[in-house]
Amino acid sequence: MMKKKSSFSTQGQRGDIGDLEIYRMLPNRYADAVGPFVFLDHIVPTIRTTINKGGTGAHPHRGIATLTYILDGEDEHFDSAGNYALVHSGGVQWMNAGNGIIHDETLNYDSLTDSRLVHALQFWINLPSVIKAGKPAYLAVEGDAVPRKELPDRKGWIKVIAGEFEELRSAIPDYSEQFLYHIHLEADAVFEIVFESETEVAVYLPELPGVINDEKFNAGDFIEFDRKAGIMELHNNNQKACDVIVFGGAPYREPIFAEGPFVMNSKVDTAIAYRDFYNGDYGTIDYEKQRAAARG
């Protein structure tokens, strides 16, 4: 089987929030989506010495599921459907916005460890039109519940954040074919994945360079590949361990109209989403009530 060819590579656009340094990787100047994924922000490693208790700002969503993967730190989630959770390093916060929700997330250093490091990835997963009008849903997954396996010959490990890989299966719901892998490669390790025809797949190198199918890429590169069936060979040519994010899935076949926090299938749907939000239909967040309920 042939190795897949890269279609493009690009670096992200910076867009910080408060003291968090953030790079917008998707959408970019070449692509609006990779499979069902329409958004990727990288919150780069940041040392935080104080706890942010004020949140990053409540805001609405409709038509998507948000997925925050916390590599380091802890993420506190609130939403107007009454969901609350505090998830720590290695965990995932997933929320289906359905027909409209308001949520707020706050990234802080992990209160369970001595580390002051904050590092995360946030994805938006576009929902099929038949799901966009459904009820919101929510799932919190702590790090020790994320499916993980060691790679052969002590090459590293793979975590399945969404979708499946071999016998591993994520608890995150699938509404279409999707996969999101965190692959940790030891120095000079090589690992291969085979993808079927028509599958859209991208790779993100968050911190270190790497070689993919014999092509060298830089740290911070976002790379999309062709849709032909083929092999993806990941080679960590660094002198220390490297992390690789691989994600994608089946092409999204419906129209995509993204504006602000809403991703819908037409301009009319987007206008309705804004109207309903301004009418107060998405509800409100009761921060203290949700925190108190979690404490029991």
Rank of each mutant, 00 (worst) to 15 (best):
L86C: 13
A219T: 09
D269G: 00
G54L: 07
A145R: 10
A33Q: 12
A271K: 14
S170W: 05
T270M: 03
G249C: 03
F191C: 01
R253T: 13
K155F: 11
L127H: 05
G220M: 08
P128Y: 10
R169W: 07
A250T: 13
Y287L: 00
V268W: 14
A65P: 10
Q13R: 08
M95L: 12
P251I: 00
I285A: 03
F262C: 10
H182K: 08
A241P: 09
V44N: 00
P255N: 08
I51V: 12
K5E: 00
R116I: 06
V87H: 08
H184Q: 09
T66P: 10
I212M: 02
I102M: 14
L112E: 14
A219Y: 14
K3P: 01
K3G: 06
A189F: 12
P209W: 06
G249A: 07
K3L: 04
F277L: 03
F39Q: 04
H61P: 05
E166Y: 10
D214C: 04
R295H: 14
E105D: 06
K159R: 15
Y204C: 01
E254W: 12
D188R: 15
G134Q: 12
A202D: 11
L168I: 07
H103D: 02
G156E: 07
I22W: 09
N108P: 09
R48L: 09
